[in-house]
């Protein structure tokens, strides 16, 4: 079983649209959407959800209202201004925790003289296993103020790999998270190939260098594709040169094509239409050699 991870550094480069196209072109893949900050793959693959699992990470404090004596010890020690005071309907003064401001450190739990602060695992969202027209999809959804994490990415990826192994799927395709932090590292370690989708802009160029230093460190074969290359051909050439110097293989260019959005409108991957850029994407897929 092989595994292709698609990342981009910066957002908005067309990564998800291209990933969806590969999912259609591939032979019996398992698809994992690890871009849970902006999980959009399901909008194209129209999954039928088979099972859901709660996702917990970190902790959150909660004061038991009835037992709180409003002594203010928690408030005095909280460094995140997460403790507020209010008067209940019954006219009792109490402290309570703002769940968005709480960083789950546990200091208030420790200092509360009445021991009335609960400390529970924080429910951050859920992850799901679904059926789609191109095969199984493992994906996730996060709540407000919940952050993507190495843990969530690992969970989604592991499940995708397990399905692939159990049912003999030859390939796992991973839509990776943005940036270059812990979630990205969790999404690429141990994979067969990383494809970086970038664009010929000042920020695209800047982010690509950081992403490639990551793949080099983990010794994962890196490939690069410039999307919307004809927006700025000179910069495309410059980005490709830099990518080659950084040890990456160039796997083709994709032209600026509004059809990618048009396909999105009708819940299709662009390769399911007859758009001009389809030959570019098919070429990239061939070059990748899966």
């Amino acid at each position: 079983m092989r595994e292709l991870v698609i990342i981009s550094g910066k957002g908005g480069t067309g990564k998800t649209s291209i990933t969806a196209s590969f999912a259609i072109l591939a032979n019996r893949p398992v698809v994992a959407d690890c871009d849970v900050d902006a999980a959009d793959l399901h909008l194209i693959l129209s999954p039928a959800i088979k099972s859901r699992y709660a996702f917990q990470a970190g902790y959150e404090a909660g004061i038991r209202e009835k037992e709180c004596i409003a002594c203010g010890a928690c408030m005095a020690h909280c460094r995140f201004d997460a403790v507020r005071v209010t008067i209940t309907d019954a006219g009792k003064k109490i402290c309570f925790i703002d769940p968005i401001a709480c960083e789950g450190c546990g200091v208030c739990v420790r200092v509360c003289p009445e021991h009335v602060i609960d400390f529970s695992e924080r429910l951050c969202g859920e992850w799901m296993v679904s059926d789609t027209r191109c095969g199984p999809l493992v994906h996730a959804r996060l709540g407000v103020a919940a952050e993507n994490s190495g843990k969530l990415v690992s969970t989604v990826r592991q499940e995708a790999r397990r399905i692939a192994k159990d049912d003999n799927h030859p390939l796992v395709i991973v839509d990776g998270p943005p940036g270059i932090g812990c979630p990205v590292i969790a999404s690429i370690t141990g994979s067969s190939t990383v494809l970086v989708i970038t664009e010929p802009t000042v920020s695209g160029e800047h982010d690509l260098e950081r992403v490639l230093s990551l793949t080099r460190h983990f010794q994962i074969p890196a490939t690069v594709c410039v999307n919307k290359w004809d927006i700025n051909p000179e910069m495309t050439v410059r980005i490709e040169d830099k990518a080659r110097q950084a040890g990456a293989r160039i796997v083709g260019r994709i032209r600026y094509d509004r059809s990618i959005t048009k396909a999105q409108m009708i819940k299709k991957a662009v390769v399911e239409t007859d758009a001009p850029c389809v030959e570019d994407i098919k070429n990239v897929w061939m070059q990748l050699g899966f």
Binding site: T16, A38, L43, Q264
Partner: peptide, 19 residues
């Protein structure tokens, strides 16, 4: 952006700002 991706991500952002 006036796209399905844009709408999905806007809905999340609206939930956040309202909260």
């Amino acid at each position: 952006e006036p796209t399905p991706f844009g709408l999905n991500d806007l809905q999340l952002a609206v939930d956040m700002v309202r909260e």
